[in-house]
Design a binder for these strands. Sequence first.
DNA 1: GCCAACGTTGGC
DNA 2: GCCAACGTTGGC
Length: 157
Amino acid sequence: MPNYWLMKTEPNTFSIQDLEKAPHQTTCWEGVRNYQARNMLRDDVKKGDMVLFYHSNTEPVGVHGTAKVVKPGYPDHFQFEPKSKYYDPKASPERPRWFMVDIKHQQTFQQPVTLQTLRTVDALQDMKLLQKGQRLSVQPVTKTQWDLIVKMGATRS
DNA sequence: GCCAACGTTGGC
DNA sequence: GCCAACGTTGGC
């Protein structure tokens, strides 16, 4: 059984359209520098897990499609590169601190499921995303939440 | 651009 | 180990 996740990105930096255009429609999900999110990437995100692809700081904010995990947690190499904005002088290849996964594009929603819309659906009110102050860039979602959002994304309103 | 919420850092 | 200062996230 796969697990289900929501991952946030700023589309100026990397959008679902960028993912579609990427080689093999696959990318490494680098740059997560929060310990809670790191722990999930390292320990919990498995190959075959499914991802809701969320755009933040944009219009419209919301879930724009889905992706699939094709490679589970492995050290984020940007932490070792002094020129990278993600460089971490306290990390070393022997003792990596930060992890990433590889994800592959699955579908881009015909109609993004906006944050505004998510807030109106009773069955989704438990989502971490909707809780006040919740900022994690990698979050678990339930299969029920996943199914509902994917259905909403596939349906034109 | 504002600002609330939260995480991290570092002096003590 | 406390906690003030600072930095970041992310909706609006």
